[in-house]
């Protein structure tokens, strides 16, 4: 908080000359921003992959292939399977485990339960880290604001010893403090955008999964009745 008239106002100088707490806030925001961008890209790839897998599986399923063969194929290539394939594998596996003479209602009930469990697990996987993005989007502006308020407080406190106050005394302090807000916003804005986008995408996927589950139970019930 020097009070000379000619100030080095370069970005790096502003950061290095900030007070320790503001620097700490900047460091935290930097880490938050880094991890939030990491999750943004991870979720982007995951959701894209799931949507593609779901499209492919629905294509194959409604073309009317043999369900046993489809099940066997999914089991054998389980490392490349999508969420919907896993739901199908769980439901069909549970359905075929029951011996032939069992009550149809009970078979369908346990099949639905198995699919529901897998569905929950898959949704949990798809929605993981989305809450982190939401937290970053809502909290990081406040963290940045805290750093800024602290920096401006310091820069005004340094005015108390000066008889004639000019804007040049406060300006560098405020500038370096405002960098914290800027960093907070830089972390928050993409996180909020990504959260909203990914939440709607996972919702779409969830609807598709649920309707597929209902349709699969119908298909299986018809098959058992035959």
């Amino acid at each position: 908080m020097s009070t000379t008239v000619t100030q080095d106002m370069s970005f790096l100088h502003l950061i290095t000359s900030a007070s320790v707490l503001v620097q700490l806030v900047m460091l935290i925001l930097m880490l938050i921003s880094l991890s939030s961008w990491w999750f943004i890209f991870r979720k982007l790839f995951v959701i894209r992959y799931e949507i593609k897998k779901t499209d492919d599986f629905e294509d194959i399923f409604w073309r009317g292939v043999d369900l046993n063969a489809l099940h066997q194929r999914i089991i054998s290539s389980r490392y490349e399977s999508g969420s919907l394939e896993r739901i199908f594998a769980a439901g069909f596996g549970e359905f075929t485990k029951h011996p032939a003479g069992t009550d149809l209602e009970a078979v369908m009930e346990s099949t639905r339960r198995a699919m529901r469990a897998t569905y929950q697990r898959e949704m949990d996987y798809l929605e993981s880290h989305l809450s982190f993005l939401a937290t970053v989007g809502s909290v990081s502006p406040y963290i940045g604001l805290f750093g800024t308020v602290w920096g401006i407080m310091n820069s005004f406190r340094s005015l108390s010893s000066v008889t004639q106050a000019t804007i040049a005394h406060v300006a560098p302090g405020i500038a370096e403090a405002l960098i914290a807000t800027a960093m907070g916003l830089f972390a928050a804005i993409p996180a909020v955008v990504a959260y909203n986008r990914y939440a709607s995408r996972t919702d779409q996927l969830a609807t598709r999964f649920e309707s597929f589950m209902e349709e699969l139970s119908n298909v299986l019930q018809r098959r058992a009745a035959e």
Binding site: R42, F45, R86
Partner: peptide
Amino acid sequence: PRNFPHSEPRSLLAG
């Protein structure tokens, strides 16, 4: 169903 691992694609690339 728990034996189905989630193969998360390209997490390193994301980093």
